[in-house]
Design a protein around this nucleic acid. Structure first.
Lengths: 117, 117
DNA sequence: TGCGCATATAATTATATGCTTATATAATAA
DNA sequence: TTATTATATAAGCATATAATTATATGCGCA
């Protein structure tokens, strides 16, 4: 069965990606980071969850190759890894979602934005 | 905040859809049924799971509006509901997957195909 | 060096999910 | 009618997932 390998591969990778993004917090993180890189403490301030919860979501997204991290001083900034194999699939999904930049603007109003860029 | 309603709605519905399709069996069912309607016993023969397991997956997909059923004699045939709000999103996902028609051809070879159409 | 902040990880708990077994319902055939 | 086949549903169990709490690590600054 020549098709079996690619067939199963595709079904596996797509379903795993959908499972990963089938969580509202993670999906929102991906949308937001696709528009603007952020450090962890900003994401904690934006989402109403604990710091470990955010870290664990970021870990899963990074392990799957969707995110990359970059340290700047004491902060670690996360951004979308556009070299990822599945980036096009990701794009087709998050393109449907409304911009999340307003969340960052709200942070700025509260003075919680880290702008050490 | 004018955007809040649509924003949350979209994030909720898309993440719920992805969670639903983030299961390999359900994703494969959707791909297959998008190509060819099938009755439950065919799906049971195709996937190596029990009849209740298949029924439960079908129930979830139907409850979300992705599938519709139609009784023909003692069989209940499932097919994709193309009127569903999320059908375009569904399409964009399953279009990436390899055809599953070979599974039906295998059924035919084994004489397990229900062709009371 | 020692303290404080940012982040990660480990352990635990709570909840959700998927499967199995058992049973119910509905249609057909004898 | 009774038996058989197809399907759905309910209950129970096992596993997976997400969140919390507690702790560890790493960096910058006094």
């Amino acid at each position: 069965m020549a098709h079996t390998v690619n067939n199963e591969e595709s079904l596996d990778t797509v379903s795993q990606t959908l499972k990963l993004l089938g969580d509202k917090t993670r999906l929102t993180i991906m949308k937001l980071l696709d528009e603007q890189e952020c450090c962890v403490c900003e994401l904690v301030a934006i989402f109403n969850t604990s710091q470990p919860a955010v870290s664990q979501h970021l870990r899963k997204l990074k392990d799957a190759g969707f995110l990359q991290e970059k340290r700047r001083g004491q902060w670690i900034f996360y951004s979308v890894n556009r070299e990822n194999n599945q980036y096009e699939l990701l794009q087709s999904l998050i393109a449907r979602l409304p911009s999340q930049l307003y969340r960052i603007e709200e942070l700025e109003k509260k003075g919680l934005r880290i702008s050490c860029g």
